[in-house]
Design a protein around this nucleic acid. Structure first.
Lengths: 149, 149
DNA sequence: CTCTGTGCAAACACTTTGCAGCTAA
DNA sequence: TTAGCTGCAAAGTGTTTGCACAGAG
């Protein structure tokens, strides 16, 4: 057991809520899960598993990439994180649960959040809504970012 | 040189246009490119490279998966195909250039086209448009399809 | 104490690259 | 003829799986 007081300093409220969600889902609250969760909500980088891994390794030296991968999948499953849409490349994760949209630079792969109210609640066309269960609706832009052009 | 009359039977118009686009881009029109292109526009399945490969192998027995991969990348580059947005999994390609949106089943990975006019021309918010060059705007739904639920 | 979660290693899936021979233009 | 393309093989990147041990509840 690693000293949680060092790893978990701020973000107390989110972390408490996370622990409750874990227990509700029948999942143990392990220090690994806590650091991965914390690393994800601390950044706006929409990191890949590898990026999260490099980050958490600094405070949790012998965590494995597998655990990070498994944990990120779990976070998506219990609804405290999500995977960012995109075409190809490695999965990217997002701990921001507030409604927002993404712009992805096809050169540097940077993902930028933006928020445009009219996109917040895109209506599902009737024929789709009747036939399928829509769980996620996204508006997604791709292009070249300011620093790449 | 494989007999093109067997491979290229219908879709004459699209294929002629494709040949012109290739030449304009300085690309040679090879039988491999023709069969890959044809396989892609013939289906509504939004296939992965592997799926295209299995398809074209039936008519072009010794084509390699590498060539299929390279060709699909080229088709996207010259604008006669596109990669479908999604989270994770293998790249999926689309030869349908008409404006449309995608619904993807997270269980069976099936991608279904739909068309809802209001989504055709999503406006880019001013602050994004000024800062970034937006090349692609998509509205994308995820959920469970009729046969999976 | 028990059963889930972890770390490690290996397997796996998908994509990319280097290169020699081939072929469309 | 020749620049570009293909097929093959190998390597690279990202993800998944099986298993013994560790630790949260």
């Amino acid at each position: 057991m690693v000293n949680n007081n060092i790893i978990i300093n701020k973000l107390k409220k989110e972390i408490d809520a996370f622990q409750i969600k874990c227990r509700k889902a029948g999942l143990k609250v392990t220090p690994q899960r806590l650091v991965v969760y914390k690393a994800l909500i601390e950044t706006k980088q929409h990191p890949s598993a590898e990026m999260v891994f490099r980050r958490v390794r600094k405070v949790f030296h012998n965590i494995s990439l597998d655990t990070v991968n498994r944990t990120l999948a779990i976070l998506s499953k219990i609804g405290v994180a999500s995977t960012v849409e995109g075409s190809g490349d490695a999965k990217r994760f997002d701990g921001n649960l507030k409604p927002h949209q993404h712009f992805k630079c096809i050169k540097c792969k940077r993902i930028i959040d933006f928020y445009h109210k009219p996109f917040e609640n895109v209506k599902v066309p009737a024929d789709i809504g009747e036939k399928f269960t829509v769980l996620r609706k996204t508006v997604y832009f791709e292009g070249i970012c300011d620093s790449c052009r």
